[in-house]
């Protein structure tokens, strides 16, 4: 029942309008429709924002499978989800851009890539280009939103973080570094409303021409040995993996040793 309590507490005149773009995911093992992992993280991020009015937006067809998946998002504690009806194989960009352009939310949150279809991750970029809003990718958290400027925490590889400031309205994408989505509760998921909206539709004309097949295992890269003589071939085959050419400091005082290590650490830029 906790999500509904949250709902009551939330003031109606909340300042920040947040739209979360959600899609229908695909379970990697069973292949069933589910909430997409990154989109669910995006919803979680939106729900943790202070004084935000969150709307969920999905463009696509409504059938039995996708309804189950979409209700998964409602089960996270939201009363309604806006569904822009688009048939299978449509290009949803126009419909989404139109809806977002009319609603003018301050912050649009999306996952990085879809788990079905092309999954190119282009949609947020195309929306940003179309609407002329800035886009920040790979978000870990939104630290604060003040005076139309959001302070964001971007996830870098190797567990590092970077702080960014972006002027709103903006589009942000969430990656796997953001906090995990809360569990979806069954009751609120059943009670939540899916409000359908009609919108103009354009077909995606390029996609039917492509050949889509289940992912093949990529061939492993072979070590190519370019040897001119038997000796070189033998050496390549029998070679032990060795770094080689390392510098060894023997009989150095601890200070000299520390100096050498310090220089290397500085060169690599790992010291902060």
């Amino acid at each position: 029942m906790r999500p509904e309590v949250d709902e009551v507490k939330k003031p109606k005149q909340s300042a920040l309008e947040v739209a979360v773009l959600v899609s229908v995911g695909r379970h990697p093992v069973t292949g069933r429709a589910r909430r997409a992992d990154q989109d669910a993280r995006g919803v979680e991020l939106a729900l943790t924002l202070d004084e935000a009015r969150v709307t969920l937006l999905h463009a696509g067809a409504l059938d039995e499978q996708s309804e189950g998946a979409l209700r998964g998002y409602l089960g996270m504690g939201l009363p309604a989800l806006t569904l822009i009806e688009q048939p299978q194989g449509a290009d949803v960009l126009d419909a989404l851009a139109g809806t977002l352009g009319d609603a003018r939310p301050q912050l649009v949150i999306a996952g990085e890539r879809a788990e079905q279809g092309e999954g190119s991750g282009m949609l947020p970029y195309l929306l940003a280009e179309r609407l002329g809003w800035p886009l920040v990718g790979g978000l870990a958290a939104v630290e604060k939103v003040e005076d139309g400027v959001a302070t964001l925490l971007q996830a870098l590889p190797r567990g590092q973080r970077r702080r960014l400031q972006v002027r709103l309205p903006a589009i942000v994408t969430v990656d796997a570094a953001a906090s995990a989505a809360r569990q979806s509760a069954f009751g609120p998921a059943r009670r939540g409303a899916i409000e359908t909206e009609a919108a103009a539709m354009t077909w995606d004309e390029a996609m039917p021409e492509w050949k889509v097949s289940p992912a093949r295992k990529r061939p492993k890269r072979l070590k190519i040995v370019k040897a001119t003589s038997a000796r070189e071939r033998f050496k390549a085959a029998a070679a032990k993996a060795e770094g080689g050419g390392g510098q060894v400091l023997t009989d150095a005082t601890p200070e000299q040793g520390a100096e050498a290590i310090f220089k290397l650490l500085k060169e690599e830029g790992v010291l902060r």
Binding site: G246, V248, L249, P254, E255, G257, L271
Partner: peptide, 24 residues
């Protein structure tokens, strides 16, 4: 490990680490 290393310092670990910490 010395063979694999790009830089190897032969000596007492504790004192070298202490010197490095002090330097940093």
């Amino acid at each position: 490990m010395i063979k694999r290393a790009d830089l190897a310092v032969i000596g007492d670990a504790a004192s070298i680490l202490a010197a490095l910490v002090e330097k940093v």
